[in-house]
Amino acid sequence: MNASLLQTLLASFETVGVSWELAENPIAARLALLSYLSELGRKDIVAWDPEALPLSDLKSAMADVGMRLHAIQRGHLEPEGMVGLTGADAALADSGTLVFVQGAGRSWLPGLLPLHHVVLLPVRRIFPDLRSWYGAWHTTRPQDVSRALLVTGLSVNDDIELHAHHGLFGPGRMHVLVFEA
């Protein structure tokens, strides 16, 4: 892993208003995640399918501390008060952009509907910039994952007097847990 690429990414996250935490391995990452969610005091988490998350055994680890992972079910859930938990398919170091490719069990919605989004990012998924990620995506993407969402910072709307209001249709807070996988 290129350390300068990681440093660039973390600096970019700060520029775009995204908080981060670095973990040395998946075990440390799992502990850091549980600790972060406990501090928030939230028990119900809307998330990708546990199999699609880049940390294994999360569901049982969370159940041990009384937390529950939910899938977003259309029409049955108002996830606004919950925390969204997803992985990220890539991160672009120069802009602090996170990439989410929609697929089975990997909806964009846990990263859009809750006001607070927590992202799990293995360091090997960091690309220098948009061009390098597009290059890789263009040659490898399979047809069934053709929907990619690039998110740079928080949801912001400045329609009213050009005042920046965060969290309109996306989250007003984002936290990225970066870990060595």
Binding site: Q102, S155, V156
Partner: peptide, 13 residues
């Protein structure tokens, strides 16, 4: 430098 959201769509789900 970039929009907060860039959504790509190629085909129906």
């Amino acid at each position: 430098p970039l929009p907060a959201y860039i959504a790509h769509l190629q085909q129906a789900a």
